[in-house]
Design a protein around this nucleic acid. Structure first.
Lengths: 150, 150
DNA sequence: CCGAATTCCTATCGTTTTAGTGGGTATTCT
DNA sequence: AGAATACCCACTAAAACGATAGGAATTCGG
């Protein structure tokens, strides 16, 4: 029931771009270093994100990636859908292209998976990259205050 | 982000035992047939469930498995914990034995995974095998009524 | 105009996990 | 005795995972 590294790394990268939103294109190398991810592997993930329209790229020296929308307009669900595929814990209740099982009509476990999926999506939809940046800000402030006490 | 067949088949099997709760030991063969699962494979799953104390077995002819608690006292989360391991979408926020990452202190994505985990568990904790049996009952009744209209 | 920085692309690969199957032994009921 | 059942350990084919390899194309700065 684990997320793959695609989703984990991808969200980290998107969060990084959100934190640097407004500073022009961010080279992937710096994202990879800050987030401690293999740059080459991250390339593949960001490629998916670009094709999905969540980021845009500038090629050549001084190039890099930027979010195509404001951090407040990109949710965790948006990112995970691109990198992990349609959301849902089992194939028969995916948001998109669900693969129905033979006994879909009277399958009770299916009802369970649907409930879990809906709750999961609700949570993922409710968190934006902006929220994550604000949380990071709060923490920075906290530890900043802490410094004054030393 | 998919559940493995362990969790899927296991919940089906537990639901089957719940529907037959009170009818003495249910042979695995019949569960496997009704739920359309390889009996030999299901053996391995039920073995985990037995060791975890969710079912008990009676050996020999006319033997089989029964739930150790009432269906109302077994939740979906109970079953999935046994078959899928500690709940959580990423290793660093598992309920049990979480594997902290290097930057656990200021990892913001971690906060996101925690929220998702908590919501998922809340949902899974709220659904019992009893609930599933009642849902099945409702459907049976419905299709029964439907027959009268033809 | 050159060279460094960067995105972009396709292929390959070792490891781990998954979803079983095989081939039995032990126990209990009829 | 014989059938039905639980129980156990090993094995395996296929898929998924998490990269790595090796470059081509583009763009900026000096």
């Amino acid at each position: 029931m684990k997320l793959s590294t695609r989703g984990r790394y991808g969200l980290k990268a998107m969060f990084d771009l959100a934190q640097n939103y407004g500073s022009g294109p961010i080279p992937l190398k710096s994202v990879a270093e800050r987030q401690d991810i293999s740059e080459h592997y991250l390339e593949q993930l960001i490629s998916s994100l670009r094709k999905a329209g969540l980021v845009q790229s500038v090629r050549g020296a001084q190039g890099g990636y930027t979010l195509t929308r404001k951090p407040s307009e990109i949710t965790v669900a948006d990112v995970l859908r691109v990198l992990e595929g349609p959301l849902g814990l089992v194939d028969c209740v995916l948001e998109q292209d669900a693969v129905p099982c033979s006994r879909a009509d009277d399958c009770i476990t299916r009802v369970v998976w649907e409930k879990i999926r809906d709750n999961m999506i609700k949570t993922m939809d409710s968190i934006t990259l902006q929220d994550m940046c604000e949380e990071a800000e709060r923490r920075k402030t906290k530890s900043g205050n802490y410094m004054y006490y030393i």
